[in-house]
Simulated scan of single mutants.
Amino acid sequence: MATPEERIAELGLTLPEVVPPVAAYQPTVRSGAHVYVSGQLPFVDGALPATGKVGAEVSPETAKELAAVCALNAIAAVRAEVGDLSDVVRIVKVGGFVASAPEFTGHPGVINGASELLGEVFGPAGVHARAAVGVASLPLDSPVEVDMIVEVR
């Protein structure tokens, strides 16, 4: 069976460097067998590829792609904390936040971008509990943000 790193490469992706915090927090905190990953924005090469509200300035399809980028950034943060993604036992919970126009209700479909990537990378260990929540705004006018709780060896 392929390792998570090999699956990432098979998907044509590369784990980015961990995005430095934009405020007073750490990207991850490990407590026992769990790694708590702070909310990750969809930074690519240090910039947000899109800003604005989903259902207004940002399409749901673009937002779903950005949610996958958030998950990739979260995976990078986990690797930086534990050293080897093969030490991931399970993705326990994902929190997905969607800055959306008031009439937009497709939050679960947007956050599926993160959930689907986690399933592709971690297989059965990537199946998780989840929340997909609409919010009025997110830091830096990001359309999406994703956080996670991960069980590790």
Rank of each mutant, 00 (worst) to 15 (best):
M1W: 10
A2C: 11
R7A: 12
I8R: 07
E10Q: 14
L11I: 02
L15S: 02
L15F: 11
V19H: 07
P20C: 04
V22K: 13
V22I: 15
A23E: 13
A24G: 11
Y25N: 07
Y25T: 08
T28E: 11
R30L: 04
S31A: 14
A33D: 15
V37T: 09
P42L: 11
F43V: 10
F43R: 04
F43M: 10
D45I: 09
A47E: 14
G52E: 07
V54P: 08
G55L: 04
A56M: 13
E57G: 01
E57N: 03
V58P: 04
V58L: 00
P60K: 09
K64N: 13
E65F: 10
L66G: 09
A74H: 01
A77T: 10
R79K: 15
R79Y: 05
R79W: 06
V82Y: 08
G83W: 07
D84H: 05
D84T: 07
S86Q: 15
S86M: 12
V94H: 03
F97M: 14
V98N: 00
A99S: 14
A101I: 02
F104E: 03
T105K: 12
G106Y: 06
G106N: 00
H107F: 12
H107V: 07
G109N: 07
I111G: 08
A114K: 04
L118W: 05
L118N: 09
V121R: 00
F122R: 03
V127G: 11
V127R: 11
V127T: 14
R130W: 14
R130Y: 15
R130M: 13
A131K: 14
V133M: 12
V135T: 09
A136S: 15
L138F: 07
S142Y: 09
E145K: 14
E145P: 08
V146D: 08
V146H: 02
V150N: 05
R153E: 15
